[in-house]
Design a protein around this nucleic acid. Structure first.
Length: 591
DNA sequence: GTAGGGCTATAT
DNA sequence: ATATAGCCCTAC
């Protein structure tokens, strides 16, 4: 599927209160456009919305707001007051949650102040505001002043943050205008309406260049004719006594030519869909610019300019025939994904954000300045920062947290995207014992995303392949085969792998070694079984993780999924199983 | 989704 | 060499 169409579909879905799983599925499947800030912003806003609607105020939310601001800044937009307020209050809550009533127990709070305020908020010059300065003062004072501490305690900062974020969202969505598909749908709907009346809004005949003309004229005419004819039938040919209504309808239908049996002949609708699509594509091709917004494009799509830019966002709710065609592709994708999104969702915890990161990794100009403050490529002016605590003990860069975050932001994006790819690849192999030889739904694999991300990995795969020279024909046999005691273990591959790919992707610390891409033309159908031998890199548990796990188990018991979800930031990259295993070890070692 | 066993890398 | 920790697989 074309990238732009995918973009329209995703943009449309992101605006709708649709089950997130479906959207996640779409994001995992469709090719993502890498150069459209509007599209990126839509993804980000939806991610913010997800967070807010889950009642979650976290540093992730702070991240999102920062990236949105960066995008806006690129386009020369200044952060609005609502954005500043939301950002400020989210930062406040991210810090204040660590605040203890007793200032002497505020170690974690101090860490949070440094992590959130010194290392982030204070660097975001564009988010500076009076309110933020006031908070900054209080936040700092609360470190030592129990009075301020108490004052902050009394406030429900979480609710304030959520409220502010909601307000910002409202403003942001409004400023984005309606989704492109909605505009098109409405436009087409208007054209139909106008054509039914025989003229367009300006009293002109619908122009010949109008892509919708053929459909709307013929449909309009036919509908009118058909309507008249039905009236005629109803008046003149009454049903014989005792005959059923359905019989009469059959009779009536039978009188009509076969090609008019349905309301919109399939051939015609396809043609219009095609026309609509290609015309839109031309429009896009002609003016495809990062800064172009969909409203403009949609207006340009038709010779008759739209009178009102602030189109009713609910237009799609009242679909007419052609509008349905305009969104048919969306529905088709939705349908396809309903059957497969769950599985994909299982491997992508947060595709909204991952999708954005994926887009970012493909974008020549990096946007995530906030994620890489140390890279020295900052071009934005920085606000005065909380001075690094020269006097007094320095929290070692918020211990592992900040660095881990930085690392994981990139690494996890890769990891997850690649997991999707490899998962999909595995699924596509018909002889996978788990899939039981099922044929996977035919959905366009996001080639751009997978291929680009898998590029290096493919090289690794080749190296590995050469090094291993695995000659097994039957994977089941291979798996079942009992090893001799002295025989090398089937799964003890890591050394070989490391030897062969030592210099390839080791730069990404914690990045797992990845299986070769299935998209290679030389890919053997047996490769997924080699992939099975892939093992994540061992990562020691940090004290913070251990502490959090203890707390969490106290609170939730052995509900590992719940724990992982609730402490996502801490257990970044850990699976439910990891949590369970770790707990098992901790319990064991305490005995 | 979780528990439990097995395997492997790393620590002792 | 052995113990332990971390990860994976599979049954339920």
């Amino acid at each position: 599927m074309d990238e732009k169409i995918a973009k329209w579909i995703i943009e449309f879905l992101l605006r709708k209160p649709i089950d997130e799983k479906i959207i996640n599925g779409v994001l995992s499947f469709l090719p993502l456009c890498n150069n459209d800030n509007r599209f990126k912003k839509t993804i980000l806003l939806r991610a913010v919305q997800s967070e807010v609607s889950n009642g979650s105020v976290s540093e992730k939310l702070l991240d999102l707001l920062e990236v949105i601001e960066e995008l806006d800044h690129r386009e020369g937009k200044v952060a609005s007051n609502l954005m500043k307020e939301a950002y400020c209050l989210v930062a406040v809550d991210c810090t204040v949650r660590f605040l203890e009533e007793n200032v002497e127990e505020n170690g974690k709070y101090v860490e949070a102040v440094e992590r959130v305020w010194r290392d982030r908020v204070c660097l975001m010059d564009s988010m500076a505001s009076e309110e933020l300065n006031l908070w900054l003062r209080d936040i700092e004072a609360a470190v030592w002043d129990s009075g301020v501490c108490e004052k902050i305690w009394m406030r429900n900062t979480r609710n304030e943050a959520l409220k502010a974020a909601k307000s910002y969202l409202k403003e942001a969505w409004e400023s984005m205008g309606p989704a492109f598909l909605e505009l098109v749908a409405k436009k087409v709907g208007n054209e139909v309406e106008e054509c039914r009346r025989g003229k367009d809004g300006g009293g002109r005949e619908v122009s010949l260049e109008n892509p919708c003309r053929e459909l709307v004229v013929s449909q309009g005419t036919r509908n009118t004719q058909s309507c008249l004819r039905r009236k005629h039938v109803a008046m003149k040919s009454r049903r014989p006594k005792g005959a059923k209504i359905s019989d009469a309808e059959k009779e009536e239908d039978a009188q009509e030519p076969v090609n008019e049996a349905s309301d919109v002949p399939a051939q015609q609708s396809e043609k219009v869909q095609e026309t609509l699509q290609s015309d839109s594509m031309q429009q896009f091709a002609a003016v495809n610019d990062i800064h172009l917004d969909a409203s403009q494009t949609a207006r340009d799509l038709s010779p008759t300019k739209m009178k009102d830019n602030t189109t009713d966002v609910n237009a799609v709710e009242n679909k007419t025939g052609p509008e349905i065609h305009a969104t048919a592709e969306v529905n088709r994708v939705q349908y396809a994904l309903r059957t497969s999104s769950r599985e994909l969702h299982a491997v992508v915890t947060d595709p909204l954000i991952e999708a954005f990161k994926m887009v970012e990794t493909m974008t020549p100009v990096g946007v995530t300045g906030n994620h890489d403050n140390t890279a020295g490529n900052q071009t934005r002016p920085k606000m005065h920062a909380i001075p690094k605590a020269d006097s007094g003990p320095q929290v070692p860069e918020s211990s592992s947290v900040k660095h881990a975050d930085d690392r994981n932001l990139n690494h996890d994006a890769h990891e997850k995207v690649e997991n999707v790819s490899s998962k999909m690849a595995t699924n596509n192999m018909s002889n996978d014992p788990k899939s039981g030889g099922q044929i996977q739904p035919e959905v366009d694999v996001p080639r751009e995303s997978t291929d680009i991300n898998m590029e290096n990995i493919e090289k690794e795969g080749e190296l590995k392949e050469n090094a291993q020279g695995n000659g097994f024909c039957n994977p089941k046999e291979q798996l079942k085969r009992k090893r001799g005691l002295m025989e090398p273990n089937d799964t003890s591959h890591t050394l070989e792998w490391d030897e062969s790919v030592e210099n390839s992707s080791r730069g990404l610390r914690g990045s797992p070694r990845l299986p070769p891409s299935p998209n290679r033309s030389t890919a053997s159908p047996l490769r997924p079984y080699e992939d099975k031998k892939f093992r994540r890199e061992r990562r020691r548990w940090t004290a913070q993780e251990e502490d959090t796990l203890k707390e969490a188990v106290k609170k939730f018991g052995h509900r590992w999924t719940m724990i992982r979800t609730c402490y996502e930031e801490v257990f970044n990259g850990r699976t439910d199983g990891d949590l369970k295993d770790k707990w098992r070890n901790m319990v064991k070692s305490q005995r």
